[in-house]
Amino acid sequence: MATNTSLEERIAAVEAAITELQKQVANTQPTNWLQQITGSFKDEPAFEEVLALGRAIRQGDESVLEAQDEL
């Protein structure tokens, strides 16, 4: 019978852990991934260059791509 008691204790522990995890999942707020990364590249020197290149491409200046290929 000792094995049964041990098994019952183990199942009770698993059930308690599941209940705790369910509470944690229920209390989490949905996160907006964009808000999490906003500003994360502000101190990155290459970021300004990426923005400028993207702006140039959107405005139709695709010569910036050719200039980058030559580097």
Rank of each mutant, 00 (worst) to 15 (best):
A2F: 04
A2I: 04
A2Q: 03
T3G: 03
T3N: 05
N4K: 11
S6A: 11
S6Y: 04
L7R: 10
L7P: 00
L7K: 12
E8Y: 04
R10G: 07
I11M: 10
I11G: 01
I11P: 01
I11T: 07
A12Y: 09
A12T: 13
A13D: 12
A13W: 04
V14H: 03
V14P: 02
E15P: 01
A16Y: 02
A16E: 09
A16H: 05
A17K: 06
A17R: 06
I18Y: 11
T19W: 00
T19N: 11
T19H: 06
E20L: 04
E20Y: 00
E20D: 07
E20W: 01
L21N: 06
L21Q: 03
L21G: 02
L21D: 02
Q22K: 11
Q22H: 04
Q24V: 04
Q24P: 02
Q24M: 06
V25H: 07
N27E: 12
N27S: 14
N27V: 01
T28S: 13
T28A: 14
T28M: 15
T28Y: 07
Q29T: 14
Q29C: 06
Q29D: 13
Q29G: 03
Q29A: 13
P30D: 08
T31P: 01
N32G: 00
Q35E: 15
Q35A: 14
Q36G: 03
Q36A: 14
I37A: 11
I37S: 11
I37N: 09
I37M: 13
T38V: 10
T38P: 00
T38Q: 12
G39F: 03
G39W: 03
G39A: 05
S40Q: 13
F41T: 10
F41P: 00
K42F: 10
K42L: 07
K42G: 08
K42R: 14
D43E: 11
D43M: 04
D43Q: 08
E44Y: 05
E44H: 07
P45Q: 05
A46I: 07
A46K: 05
A46P: 00
A46M: 09
F47L: 05
E48A: 15
E48N: 09
E49C: 01
E49R: 07
G54E: 04
G54T: 02
R55H: 15
R55V: 11
A56R: 10
A56K: 13
I57L: 12
I57E: 12
I57W: 03
R58H: 09
R58A: 13
Q59V: 05
D61G: 08
D61Q: 10
D61C: 09
D61W: 06
E62H: 10
E62Y: 08
S63R: 11
S63H: 04
V64Q: 01
V64L: 02
V64H: 00
V64F: 02
L65R: 07
E66Q: 15
E66S: 14
A67D: 14
Q68L: 15
D69S: 06
E70Y: 01
E70G: 05
E70H: 04
L71C: 04
L71Y: 08
